[in-house]
């Protein structure tokens, strides 16, 4: 079994150890690569953390199911895009280096949910979600973010039946609605 597949499976299943492992494996290479741009060490670390979290989001959301290249290449392509975005904010983009991002439509691999600006309604929903109990947060996260089926949730959270999962989901959503102000 290949290491990259193993790591992607771990990220998909929400394994925290795998997240740290992936972060550490490619960190020094990424820092070495990013040093050629006008970024501080802290900025590079910050970007690299976002790169790894973007990778996880793409795996969990199903955007990335199989790799066409190595995991390292995929991570570096996201990294390059994030460096480009950061430098663009500073008006300091070396155009030649980033031609691939300037002329074409942005690849969906670089469209991350966590980077989106929240609407007013989403902000209210966010506040309400934070007020939910841990069990409800966990259940809704598995269903809406990790795209787990009821069967998957049944196994993951040790509920007694699929019907219990379904009714718990309804209860959690009802509570969430009640908490929206």
């Amino acid at each position: 079994m290949h290491k990259d597949t193993f790591l992607l499976e771990g990220l998909k299943n929400g394994n925290e150890k795998t997240l740290s492992k992936v972060y550490l494996i490619y960190k020094s290479d990424f820092i070495a690569y990013a040093k050629k741009f006008d970024l501080s060490k802290d900025d590079i670390i910050d970007v690299y953390q976002d790169v790894i979290l973007a990778l996880r989001e793409n795996v969990v959301s199903g955007k990335l199911t199989a790799l066409n290249s190595s995991l390292k290449t995929y991570i570096f392509s996201i990294g390059k895009y994030m460096i480009y975005s950061k430098l663009r904010k500073k008006n300091n983009v070396h155009l030649q280096e980033f031609n691939e991002f300037t002329n074409t439509e942005i690849n969906q691999d670089y469209d991350f949910l966590f980077a989106k600006e929240l609407t007013q309604n989403q902000k209210k929903l966010q506040i309400a979600f934070k007020k939910l109990g841990k069990k409800c947060q966990q259940l809704l996260t598995l269903l809406f973010y990790n795209n787990y089926s009821f069967d998957d949730v049944l196994e993951e959270l040790d509920y007694t039946s699929k019907d219990v999962v379904k009714s718990q989901k309804s209860r959690c959503l009802k509570t969430l609605k009640q908490k929206i102000k």
Binding site: F114, Q126, Q137, L140, Y145
Partner: peptide, 21 residues
């Protein structure tokens, strides 16, 4: 909307984990 909100939450948790590391 819920997916976006949860994605933000998961990002925040993951960021804390990596910063701690």
């Amino acid at each position: 909307d819920l997916k976006t909100v949860i994605a933000k939450e998961e990002y925040t948790k993951g960021k804390k984990q990596l910063q701690k590391l």
